[in-house]
Amino acid sequence: MSAGPSSTSDAGAAAGSIAQTDLAQMLAGLQVDVREGEYVYASTSDARSPLRELALATVTENEGLTCVLRRADADAHGVKYDFVAAWLTLRVHSALEAVGLTAAFSRALTRHGIPCNVLAGFYHDHLLVPADRCDEALAALHSLRGEAGV
Rank of each mutant, 00 (worst) to 15 (best):
S6N: 12
S9H: 14
A11S: 12
A11D: 10
A14E: 13
S17T: 15
S17Q: 15
A19F: 04
Q20W: 08
D22A: 09
L23K: 01
A24T: 11
A24F: 09
M26R: 05
L27N: 01
L27K: 02
L30F: 05
Q31G: 10
Q31E: 15
R35V: 15
R35T: 15
E38R: 11
Y41A: 10
Y41R: 07
S43N: 10
S45E: 14
A47G: 01
A47T: 07
R48L: 14
L51T: 00
L51N: 01
R52V: 14
E53G: 14
E53Q: 14
A55E: 08
L56P: 00
A57C: 12
V59P: 00
T60G: 12
E63F: 03
G64W: 02
T66W: 01
C67E: 04
A72T: 13
D73E: 15
A74D: 05
A76Y: 13
A76E: 14
H77G: 10
G78V: 07
Y81H: 03
A85I: 10
A86R: 00
A86I: 06
W87K: 01
T89E: 13
R91L: 15
R91Y: 06
S94K: 07
S94N: 11
E97M: 10
V99M: 09
L101C: 07
A104R: 00
R107V: 08
T110L: 15
R111L: 11
H112V: 13
H112F: 13
I114S: 06
I114A: 10
C116R: 01
L119A: 13
L119K: 06
A120W: 07
F122P: 02
Y123K: 07
H124K: 04
D125H: 03
H126K: 08
H126P: 02
H126Y: 06
L127V: 09
P130H: 08
P130L: 09
A131H: 02
R133W: 04
C134M: 10
E136V: 07
L138Y: 05
L138H: 03
A139P: 00
A139L: 12
A140R: 01
H142E: 12
S143R: 12
E147I: 03
A148S: 11
A148G: 08
G149N: 15
